[in-house]
Design a protein around this nucleic acid. Structure first.
Lengths: 146, 146
DNA sequence: TATTGTTATACTCTATAACTATA
DNA sequence: TATAGTTATAGAGTATAACAATA
């Protein structure tokens, strides 16, 4: 009885969740510490802060971007003083990209601004509504890991 | 006692909500009906479907993009057969941008794919968790309107 | 003269293909 | 010969400035 592509949506509210998520994300992305940074550059810095030093190949895979495009992004970030490139001593073909102190600072400031914007909106909600969003954040994280 | 910029976050879970939202949105944006369409083009089509015909100026404002950039986006969408441009008969400087049937179809197919992806993830959750996300979607919409 | 939209031009971001260095 | 990274080159997307048409 199961179908790979059901004719009717199993969870009609998925459309509501999709719309709300895309619009909130769109609004959040407007808040950043350095307006000169592109979305791609901002995202790479955030990923490095979250996961630690990475190879250019790992970054291009995560960002769904070609290796040459990531290379250009890394050139810009290095030029701006936000990342360092360190060749591996084991295998000299490999490079490790890591955040500088300035890079870490810009990531943290961007997060601070986004959170500040969000907290102002949360202030206008009831305690129950805030509680519901807290739970939702946890569930969404679980959903993404599945 | 109130401060415009509080020293400590009033709602520490804002960071969780921010992270979950940005990552879910990132994943959702990968699903689209026409891989040739850029994110900006996809977003313009969705906006036209949601709000009806709009002027180029209104679209560039909503997309936070310059009028010439929007003009180029509209050229591409018109070339692809997804939008029409109709001059106003009242004020001949003004243009109305509207979806063609093909444009409407590609918006709906993109939404269908995103919802299908999301519904598969929702299937792996409990009924309580799905209920929590339903409520969250409503609250987020309210939050964005504030 | 002001406004709406478009064209001119230049710069950034992206991609594919080719190249370098190392293994 | 294969792999990680980079460079070469070209195609979109974006911006500011200038222009055209209309009011």
């Amino acid at each position: 009885m199961s179908a790979v592509l059901p004719a009717a949506p199993a969870h009609p509210f998925a459309a509501e969740l999709r719309g709300a998520t895309l619009r909130l994300a769109r609004r959040l992305r407007l808040e950043k510490a350095d307006d000169e940074l592109s979305d791609g550059q901002t995202s790479v810095l955030a990923y490095l802060e979250r996961r630690g030093a990475q190879s250019p190949a790992a970054l291009s895979a995560f960002e769904h971007v070609s290796p040459p495009s990531m290379n250009r992004t890394l050139n810009a970030l290095q030029e701006a003083g936000y990342v360092d490139r360190t060749p591996s001593s084991d295998d000299r073909r490999m490079v490790s990209v890591s955040l500088t102190d300035a890079g870490r600072a810009v990531v943290q400031e961007t997060r601070r601004r986004r959170d500040a914007w969000l907290e102002q909106r949360l202030d206008e909600l009831s305690a129950d509504e805030r509680h519901a969003l807290t739970e939702a954040a946890t569930i969404i994280r679980k959903l993404l890991e599945a």
